Amino acid sequence: MYIAVKGGEAAIEASRQLLARKRRGPEDQPALQVAQVQSQLSLLVSRVMAEASLFDPELAALAVTQALGDPIEAAFLLRAYRTTLPRLAFSEPLDTDTLRAARRVSAIFKDLPGGQVLGPTPDYTQRLLDFSLLRGEAPTASKAATFTQPDTPADGTVPNALHSLAAEGLIEPALPQAGDPVPVDITRDPPRYPLPRSGRLQMLARADEGWVLGMGYATQRGYAHSHPFAGDIRFGAATVSVVPDELDFPIDIGEIEVTECQMLNQFVGSATQPPQFTRGYGLVFGHGERKAMAMSLVDRVLRCDEFDERAGSPTQDQEFVLPQGDSVEASGFVQHLKLPHYVTFESELQMIRQLRADAQALAQAQAQVPTKDQP
């Protein structure tokens, strides 16, 4: 739209050059390499992959670098690239029970099969600035860095923490029902509300982390019937399998890193279901623990109709929670206000002036009309 402004094309080109200069930074400092972003800003890369719905750490790191570290802009870049890719095959459902866990924790068991695997996390740090990083000092190796849980299998897989509860019938089953419909694909078909759970999970998985976190926090502050427990949280590598057209059995084609969370909520039962714990589910690309936890909280409260719960909160309204969570759409809709709107504004300005003139004329006319108390 700025092209129509006098000198707009030259101004746009100058703006692009300034952006490139800002991205490069001072010439006396080494240029930031994409490989550095991928390996050293891995949590940011994971967030961008999740919100772009594309698992490719290298391209996500490229998008982060190009976007000057803005995760929403980076997700926009990566999602735009994703639309150019052909769909070659459909993968089989991930078996997260066989995930090679770099981290797995549960808040509901004191003695957990496979043990707690703390892995890389800031949960146990004091949140104090580490000024040694300013001096470029490398961390010293320690025994803690090589600690392994004694009862963790050699291949890194750990049993699901919720299997024992499921075996007792104390938690709702997590198996597909007979005749379960094919999951919707929101990347090909526009969402139509009410969405089935498969569509809701897709939208939450690629929604803005801040929005999902806010909605998850709201459910804990009383804006839903939510009493959550962190049942099983795990991060690691999951195997991806496909069934080629020329074969009738699946083959493994690689691994992707994912974070999975299952939250438990107490359910007192209904006319058709016994008292049990119900599940909220979250799964995101890369290491995104906070996003997966918030996603599982929101997933559970959006299932209120399944458990005959009263939906009296915005967090239980699909059409409030899901569309506003898309960071690319939200960013575009807000930022388009920076583009020229002088024609629209001029029309509204004329309307305001006319309304003010009409109001002033009416006031003057009323002031000249005598009342019954005047002579």
Rank of each mutant, 00 (worst) to 15 (best):
A31K: 14
A31M: 13
A31V: 15
L32Q: 14
L32D: 08
Q33N: 07
Q33V: 11
Q33K: 15
Q33A: 15
A35V: 13
Q36F: 13
V37P: 06
V37R: 05
L41Y: 09
L41K: 13
S42K: 12
S46T: 07
S46G: 07
R47T: 10
V48T: 07
A50E: 02
E51K: 14
E51N: 13
L54V: 08
F55R: 01
D56E: 12
D56P: 06
D56F: 02
E58A: 13
E58R: 15
L59V: 04
L59E: 02
A61W: 12
A63E: 08
A63F: 02
A63Y: 00
A63W: 00
A63R: 09
T65V: 01
T65M: 05
G69C: 03
G69F: 00
D70P: 11
P71G: 01
I72G: 10
I72K: 08
I72S: 15
I72Y: 06
I72P: 07
E73I: 11
E73M: 09
A74L: 09
A74D: 07
A75W: 02
F76K: 13
F76L: 14
F76P: 01
F76N: 13
L77F: 14
L77V: 03
L77E: 03
L78N: 10
R79E: 15
R79C: 08
R79A: 15
R79F: 10
A80S: 12
